[in-house]
């Protein structure tokens, strides 16, 4: 396990409406021994409020800037594609890596997501052990291996 405290500190935002999926994800984090705090929002709108610290998320303490966003495409209301688009169009947010987690392996979905700036696209495997593997790999890559800009500095380039 990594001993880098800063990295361990980086929260992960999961955008997912389905309770089972939230549980599965939390379990995967748990079993994958990913210590980063996992914040869960249940809709696209809520995700944007969380990220922009608006609505019920006014105040930095309740809504820390995540180091990684796990985004489900199949959301009620604002769909995942749009959430992705908004994030990537927002100068404050666009450097945050977004991993699309979805059951759709449709080529069109894949292309659209990458076009709109998704950093990774993962089709959720049916078997949990496979999913766990994927989450561990992704978490390890984005949270440990990859060098990302410091979200606290808020520097505009």
């Amino acid at each position: 396990m990594s001993t880098n405290s800063r990295i361990e500190m980086l929260p992960v935002l999961l955008v997912e409406d389905d309770a089972e999926d939230i549980y599965i994800a939390q379990r995967a984090f748990e079993q994958g021994k990913i210590a980063n705090p996992l914040h869960v929002v249940r809709s696209g709108e809520e995700a944007l409020e969380f990220l922009q610290r608006t609505g019920c998320y006014v105040g930095a303490a309740e809504a820390p800037r995540p180091g990684l966003i796990l985004l489900d495409l199949n959301l009620p209301g604002m769909r995942g594609h749009e959430v992705l688009e908004r994030i990537k169009q927002d100068p404050q947010l666009r450097r945050i890596p977004v991993v699309v987690l979805t059951t759709s392996g449709e080529e069109a979905d894949v292309c659209v997501c990458y076009d709109r700036g998704a950093n990774t696209y993962i089709v959720k495997p049916v078997a949990f052990d496979k999913f766990l593997e994927a989450v561990k790999t992704v978490g390890r890559y984005w949270l440990v291996v990859a060098k990302l800009p410091d979200p606290c500095e808020d520097t505009q380039v």
Partner: peptide, 22 residues
């Protein structure tokens, strides 16, 4: 339809499998 199938039909399967494993 295929989109629906690929998403929505597989969702429960995935969950059944995951929770089965759990």
């Amino acid at each position: 339809f295929t989109h629906t199938v690929s998403h929505d039909l597989q969702e429960p399967l995935r969950k059944i499998h995951s929770f089965g494993q759990f």
